[in-house]
Design a protein around this nucleic acid. Structure first.
Lengths: 126, 126
DNA sequence: CCGGATCCAATCCGATACTG
DNA sequence: CAGTATCGGATTGGATCCGG
């Protein structure tokens, strides 16, 4: 394959890294996908995302809210009800994210094979 | 904005997370971009990527090699010479990555403003 | 129900020193 | 030159208890 030159403005790395670490947080992608089809309550998210602790879910939601990807709505009933949903920005990011996702799924076997070959030729030190 | 439904196969989250953590490692993106225009030696990479330690650069290169994104070529001169370059897979991933990057740069101000607004309405506990 | 506060184990990562 | 080995500080993340 011919080299494909990256056409990026200077300083792009930092931007991309910033975005990747935001959206690539262990649980962030699950939250985004979970909210992609509509708003959900805190407890709904926690149930639908396996193995996430309240602490991590809270932190993930805070970060995504802080960066403008999701909105948080408190209904002051007793007990409290809190709903989260994607903002416009949150919906927008689904586009490039979906592209990356589809590419990843498309190439999953290539990566899996590369990994296996590497591991076989680089045995653990016993 | 109308909700944009994510069109992803089941189990996609794990795939995407896997990809994001591979490529979203703190230094991986710098390596990939650094190699996007041609092969580079270990020391060239280390010089061009500010503040990366040998340990981290080595680890990053190992991971990318393991997953098939880069190749490692050893020339047994004295002293040794090691060249890294993107594989076909590595060049391919630049496409969705560039899309994400451009989106991130395009929306940088939105995110920055959201962050600032959030921080102002959520003051630190003094 | 939502989430903050605290404690603790595991992991990450930089600095340093050493090797082929 | 291109790593590996080791140590120690910093960060992460789960578990638990508490409060609005």
């Amino acid at each position: 394959m011919k080299p494909r030159y990256l056409n990026l403005p200077p300083g792009a790395c930092v931007e991309v890294l910033d975005m990747l670490s935001r959206v690539g947080d262990k649980w962030a992608i699950f939250v985004i996908v979970g909210l992609s089809e509509g708003s959900q309550r805190f407890s709904e998210l926690q149930r639908s995302i396996e193995n996430v602790s309240k602490k991590m879910l809270t932190a993930t939601l805070r970060n995504l809210e802080r960066d403008g990807f999701i909105s948080r709505t408190v209904t002051p009933t007793v007990p409290v009800r809190v709903d989260y949903e994607l903002t416009t920005l949150g919906h927008e990011v689904l586009v490039p994210l979906e592209a990356l996702a589809n590419w990843a799924i498309d190439r999953r076997d290539v990566v899996r094979n590369a990994r296996q070959a590497f591991d076989e030729s680089h045995p653990a030190v016993a």
